[in-house]
Amino acid sequence: MNKRMILRHTKGGIFIHWFNAACWFILLFTGLGLIQNPQLQPLGQWYPNALRAVFGGGGLLIIHLAVAVTWLLVWLVFIIANWSSHVVPFLAQVFTLKPGRDMEWMIKKNLQMTLGYKAMAFFMKPLGLGAKIPDQEYYNAGQKVAAQVMLLGALVLAVTGAIMLRGKYFMTAPLADIAWVQWAITIHYIAAGVTFGILLVHIFMAAIAKEERPAFWSMFSGEVPEEYARHHHKLWYDEVAIKTSDQ
């Protein structure tokens, strides 16, 4: 069997991914638990009550704040350390969307993922499009969009979170600042909601969808099978293949 493996993730990348995942998990669940107001709590009062029974009311906020600050600091270090090697290329890639190819991919892939190839082909026919899903780079269009939303969401969460933190510990000015804090909470909530929505899809794709299983494992080993790379990220594979054949 041709089981040649291709390096997809560096160790640093793997670390930051799982670190991020852990933080978000904790932040999401403690954050949700912090909302103890029947008008606002999406899960119902049982949830914050249960969490408070375990951690105590104040503990919940302290965990949330501690994890958030750690998360932010680690990210800052990571970004600075990997600025030119990873961060800039990553940003360049995820923010480059080619309308034709990527749009087509989005439509086709979503239909395929939810309804299957046949249905997708069926729907594409009238549009004069084939059933072929366009080749993708290191990230496919879906991943790019998800990354964009997550990035933006994380940024908003960090900024609004910082405003709230300031609200608690450094606030001196009276109402003007308080309005800022109040909006920060609302926006924080929205950002958390939206990113969580994307996260759901991401988690499904990575951990549950069978066809993406190699990608899931690569988040531990760092490598994907050559076959998987060629299939899912043809353009990237070609690049890597050329590079390797050059050697």
């Binding site: 606002l40 939810t114 958390a192 929505g197 994307i198 499904f204």
Partner: peptide, 23 residues
């Protein structure tokens, strides 16, 4: 904000459920 967020999360959830169903 609350309804919108609930809708977004709900839609995502629905999509995921659909994918799962298909799988």
């Amino acid at each position: 904000a609350d309804p919108v967020v609930k809708a977004v999360v709900g839609l995502s959830g629905l999509g995921v459920l659909a994918m799962l169903g298909k799988q």
